[in-house]
Design a protein around this nucleic acid. Structure first.
Lengths: 106, 106
DNA sequence: TTTAAAAGTAAATAATAGTTAACTTATATG
DNA sequence: CATATAAGTTAACTATTATTTACTTTTAAA
């Protein structure tokens, strides 16, 4: 299956979810909301995605409900398929000293 | 246990790992490297962290090797303890239209 | 308002991640 | 070099996640 947006019978958008803010520290719930928002924005059903990735629908639902008792590999597959990725934030890592070798950068 | 850095017998840094670039899309391997770098930078041993979080050492080793067959909850516990967090990136979500409601922002 | 598709849930089973305990290897210091 | 601590591995076992199948509810269009 290709990674293209699907349309319903009329080609009209159906129950699209609000996209949450990106580029900020996020909670599992916010991640889940972003995934659902991206999927619905792409007009893909739960079954579309679960079949494309060979994961079960209940597992995908768990992921989209923000349940953290899921395998990281499954979350990453879903995110990659939808075009989402992570970046890392460190509590106190300022932009200075980036790419530097340090014994105490924390 | 507090979240303070530990010292060895002499109080000297031991085998600190290079901190990888942050704020960029990352792979599981890079995440693993960042976790190890942060932990060693804080002078914490695998056992220090595993005991503090009630997860086993083999599981923590899996996480630090970039094995994605781990529970998301365990990864998040480790990251939170070390002061690391995620932010989200979307393939084509430019900074414009942020915080906007859209049916086709993807 | 009837119908079809999608979402969401539930229970039993299968698959696998996590733990424990012990051991080996590596690292650093006295 | 000898020793102690940390890192890393392994195997047997336990705990829990994932799948399957089926069912119920919700959503939206004819």
């Amino acid at each position: 299956m290709s990674n293209l947006a699907k349309t319903n019978r009329t080609g009209k958008a159906v129950k699209a979810t609000v996209m949450p803010n990106l580029s900020e520290r996020f909670t599992p719930t916010q991640l889940a909301e972003a995934i659902t928002a991206k999927r619905t924005g792409m007009k893909l059903s739960l079954v579309d995605v679960s079949e494309a990735l060979s994961i079960s629908k209940p597992t995908l639902v768990k992921i989209e409900k923000g349940d953290t008792n899921v395998k990281l590999a499954n979350l990453l597959k879903v995110m990659e398929y939808l075009g989402l990725s992570f970046s890392l934030l460190s509590d106190d890592a300022t932009s200075k000293a980036e790419t530097e070798v340090s014994d105490d950068w924390y």
